[in-house]
Design a protein around this nucleic acid. Sequence first.
DNA 1: CTCGCCGGTGTGAACGCTAACAGGGGTTGC
DNA 2: GCAACCCCTGTTAGCGTTCACACCGGCGAG
Lengths: 343, 343
Amino acid sequence: MVGRVAGKRPRVGIVDVAQRAGVSVGTVSKVLNGRGQLRTETRDRVRTAAQELGFVPSAVAASLHSGRTYTVGLIMTDHHGRFSLPILHGAEDALGWDETLAFVCDTRDDPIREQHYVRSLARRRVDGIIVAGRRTEPRPPLSGAPPVPVVYAFARSADPADRSVVVDEEGGAALAVQHLLRTGRRRIAHVTGPNGHASVRARVDGTARALREAGLEMVGEPWYGGWSEVWGRFAAAILVREHPDVDAVFCGSDAIGRGVADGLRDSGRRVPEDIALVGVDNWLPTAEGCRPPLTSVDLNLQQVGRTAGALLLEAIQCGATEPGIQTVPCRLVVRASSGPAGH
Amino acid sequence: MVGRVAGKRPRVGIVDVAQRAGVSVGTVSKVLNGRGQLRTETRDRVRTAAQELGFVPSAVAASLHSGRTYTVGLIMTDHHGRFSLPILHGAEDALGWDETLAFVCDTRDDPIREQHYVRSLARRRVDGIIVAGRRTEPRPPLSGAPPVPVVYAFARSADPADRSVVVDEEGGAALAVQHLLRTGRRRIAHVTGPNGHASVRARVDGTARALREAGLEMVGEPWYGGWSEVWGRFAAAILVREHPDVDAVFCGSDAIGRGVADGLRDSGRRVPEDIALVGVDNWLPTAEGCRPPLTSVDLNLQQVGRTAGALLLEAIQCGATEPGIQTVPCRLVVRASSGPAGH
DNA sequence: CTCGCCGGTGTGAACGCTAACAGGGGTTGC
DNA sequence: GCAACCCCTGTTAGCGTTCACACCGGCGAG
């Protein structure tokens, strides 16, 4: 006697529709799924009956039969959703948001919690799982994953036998530097996050490569620090003191970029007239709040999600696909901070 | 022949476990659900068999029988998740994140899309739906909702017969003003968002009330504008020109607050020595990036989610609950921007 | 005129699990 | 020694769909 509130009519099922339309359940099923060949008159009669009864077919019953739930799990580790929500959007686009729904599981950075979620998803028979990382660092593969496809997005799996979709951060950095070069800057510094981070390394590499290709050298060593605005302000102060001739700074994040912008203003430098700035993330609240608005490397997270979703879909439909790491290019969004040099 | 990839052994079911343990399916079911009375030896044997086979019970089959899916829908309208993710977290806490999972549906502000999602949730037989708003404005009730409980969070439903959980924004504003008064400020101005917004109105009312209760008057009229930093900077400039004696500003959002902080600095005023600042949202990237870090009214969204989840759970378990609007108080987070006045 | 075919519809067996009920030994009480 | 219980376990009927197949009548061809 569970699931049916006493006194309340149980939910209308396919049999009710069949009865009202004067046909069998099989026929109703065919009509509602557009299968088989039925007389038009029958189709209409069934449809009307379903309408009148407010019949909503049960996906759970259908799943039981078909083995597919049209459901995926999205495991996220950044509780603010700055990375995972764009990924979710992209994945929805690829999976068909009108037919596949996502269970969103925020692990809150707790491996136990993650385990629980994975088990939960397994019991619910999701068709696949997307693991959205928060950092570029390769992450340990999901443990205890059910026998369904898993795609790692943003942070690739440490196991190369898994499928991962990542951002070409090195290319993104190169994009930024090339843009600065194209606008005539020559003395380019790089202020970034903590040394050791995979993201930081990739961005440093990309910066160095782009400069090398132009026959230039970086102004000073990369300035390693934190991801915060405070660090950006601090770095800017030192930078202009030690290298007064710097004419552009590529910053490892928008927050750093914003800090650098403020720090430069405090030091009496104008952005972009004296020094041009480019950040990374293209996170609107920061990039657009910056004075002046910050040119930024967009990580294309929605595209990452779209690719991950497409990969997942393929794996779901065709059984196994070949594993490996797929890379999505970055995109530069130009704003005032990298405008023309002044005077 | 759907759902079973040819050549791959179909998923292990309860019958396999039963077979291996040498008992019947009923017994296995009892063991796994801790029901009925079984010999300990039997329990262990079954559990071992399940373990060895890697058996994972299917929640969809169980749902079909019980009528409950232990699944809810979260409809969100703020695609960045600034409001809806905290609400999701709170709801998960209340619903038991280890037993209830949430389908997250981002409507992207499209009513058609919302409709689709609602239908999708209905077909999936979710146990309930939480609608997380993006603004305080009452929103039209969900149309075509399935016969399951719905709770509106943050933005209440326009239909008073629905269940809603909202933030006491007026009280939050009063909290901010009272804090400023307690720290000795007397000339308090209010720079806020667009006139007409429900949030703006509530915050203006709360500000006025708190000042009235202290026998004071607001400095000038409320300064209506946008939600942006740019507006904050602009407003600050005018404010200090027209009212040089102002010693505190309560800002309608953290972004505005941050703009005001920058604007005041540009005008040569010190924060908090000359003028104290309080914002609203307690959004860390903005509040902590501010110079100095911004005291802010926290909207307690996680608590809103928790309350909404608890309400939903009650409605799910006990049938109908009485409708109405439940209010969650705000919380003040004190940072440097409202420190002691200087000299 | 009869056979066969085909379009249209009904029937019933899954899908994987739960829970009510039936049943079968062993134990206890008289 | 027999009956009545009481534990434990097996059996089975759903839950709401889908799909393969059976079936039925009408029509065209031989």
